[in-house]
């Protein structure tokens, strides 16, 4: 049986009609509408292939999101509900995710990227007040009742993150007590971390603080090698570039790191931990583990 939409250009009893009847044709070109018309079997096969590809992409999203510790800590059912609203995306160095005072459109769960949270003080360059990697999320203020960011969120290291629309996160948060627990635990740790950072910035030497930030960045990018410009190191520490140079030079001289044009490699992790202030172990101990 030849489908009714086969164009009239196909001659009765011609090879094209015979091939269609034998089930050997995937598509007919309809010159009247300039369209390629897929026959049902071909349409079905292509739809199934597209479904398989989409399942593979969902699987990839699943794989990526369990690399985020906060998501990985959720019970399976809660995690599955959340997964539908999550999309993996690549975040690039220097990308601004939030500006202070601007409504939050998305929350982010980093996988192998690092997000720097910065706050501005009039007359000074922005100061880094927090670092978020695979252990947490960006956008906790949504869970705490504010839909506006109080900080600037800037991508410090390129990598993947899972993104979710603010409204979708809000709904999921209301429906999932385990998600609430994890987010509150994380928010509590971030608050303690901010307090510790304030004390650290007041009392500890630049070199020790630089060692701490380098260790924290390395923990979040899951690598001993990463890229940080002098400007971003200056923002981390709230000092000028010359001071960054001096501190990085001192760590390099002690063969703890290698630093060249923003490329940092930690050569001696134990040594760098010893050179950092004790705030590093205190701060990292505050992060909930999955």
């Amino acid at each position: 049986m030849i489908p009714g939409y086969v164009p009239l250009r196909l001659a009765e009893g011609g090879p094209e009609r015979r091939a269609i009847e034998a089930g050997q044709i995937d598509a007919v070109i309809d010159y009247a509408s300039s369209n390629v018309i897929l026959l049902p079997a071909a349409r079905r096969a292509l739809r199934e292939a597209a479904n398989r590809a989409s399942a593979a992409s969902r699987e990839a999203a699943h794989e990526a999101s369990i690399a985020n510790r906060l998501l990985a800590a959720l019970p399976h059912a809660d995690y599955q509900r959340l997964l539908a609203g999550l999309e993996p995306l690549k975040l690039k160095l220097g990308e601004v995710l939030y500006e202070p005072g601007v409504p939050i459109r998305y929350v982010y769960f980093p996988v192998d990227c690092v997000i720097s949270l910065r706050t501005a003080v009039e007359g000074h360059p922005p100061l880094e007040v927090g670092l978020v990697g695979h252990e947490g999320m960006v956008g906790i203020s949504l869970a705490l009742g504010s839909d506006v960011s109080s900080v600037q969120a800037l991508v410090q290291a390129t990598g993947t993150a899972m993104r979710m629309e603010a409204a979708c996160f809000h709904k999921a948060f209301q429906q999932s007590p385990p998600l609430q627990n994890e987010v509150y635990r994380y928010a509590c740790a971030k608050l303690a971390l901010a307090r510790q950072t304030v004390a650290c910035n007041c009392f500890h030497a630049v070199e020790a603080r630089l060692a701490r930030w380098l260790l924290m960045t390395s923990d979040r990018v899951l690598s001993k090698k990463f890229f940080l410009t002098q400007a971003s190191l200056g923002d981390m520490l709230g000092v000028r570039r010359a001071t960054v140079n001096e501190a990085a030079g001192a760590l390099q001289q002690r063969k703890l790191i290698r630093y060249s044009r923003g490329n940092i490699r930690i050569l001696d992790r134990k040594g760098l931990e010893a050179a950092s202030c004790r705030c590093y172990t205190r701060i990292e101990g505050l992060i909930p583990s999955a």
């Binding site: 164009p7 250009r9 196909l10 094209e16 091939a19 269609i20 044709i25 995937d26 598509a27 007919v28 070109i29 010159y31 300039s34 369209n35 390629v36």
Partner: peptide, 16 residues
């Protein structure tokens, strides 16, 4: 032909 429908038509293709 899904990627190059115009070419297929220009070359007189009726079915695939």
């Amino acid at each position: 032909v899904l990627e190059h429908p115009a070419r297929a038509m220009a070359e007189g293709v009726l079915v695939t």
